[in-house]
Amino acid sequence: MIRVQDVSKVYDGGTVAVRDVTLEILKGEFVFLVGPSGSGKSTLIRLMLRQELPTDGKIWVAGKLITELPGWKVPLLRRSIGTVFQDFKLLPSKTVFENVAFALEVIGRPRHVIRNQVPQVLNLVGLGTKADRLPNQLSGGEQQRVSIARAFVNRPLILLADEPTGNLDPATSVGIMRLLDRINRTGTTVVMATHDNAIVDAMRRRVVALERGRIVRDQSRGAYEPPVEGDL
């Protein structure tokens, strides 16, 4: 589903964010990208979204070589990827319903599709009764559910989440993770960057650890910290 091959990203000024990374993520996988701030997690996600181009290397997403994708095809790539961020990125003047509907409106989905799909996905994230609220009338966890609903309403193949629980307390985070897990079970590939070790340890999914832009560990059913010798 996602293939990253020999990718490096050097920013103007010489900061090396990602160094020689090779990574393959299969359809339906749930992958944690872990590591300290500045280890390159977010850059890797931005590269997969083609918000940035790598300095070196190739990236395939959903069968397309996105590092050589012409600019006008980028929107089509993004339609197959849902994104969730730490800061939710909701529009404060739009209601919950409108925020989710917005993602369908701007890709030209007809109104009847919007009227049909938005309530469905709001029910899925548990906000069916709060469709008319504004974001600032919701708790942080609820706001993140809205943003997940927006990311998922178009049924993307891939969900990229950059620190989705970064602003939430542990109890709320568990709820969000359950939701992401549920979405993953529908067959959606989920890639989540995080440094929330409790969550990673609880979920026991594939863990890709980054340090100073390099992959230092790639472990299925892993924990946040590398296993100690003799520990199983």
Partner: peptide, 17 residues
């Protein structure tokens, strides 16, 4: 700008924007 960045993220076409 917030709206536009979301539009870009969810795959709104360049001309649509």
């Amino acid at each position: 700008r917030d709206e536009l960045s979301i539009m870009k993220l969810v795959g709104a076409g360049n001309w649509f924007v």
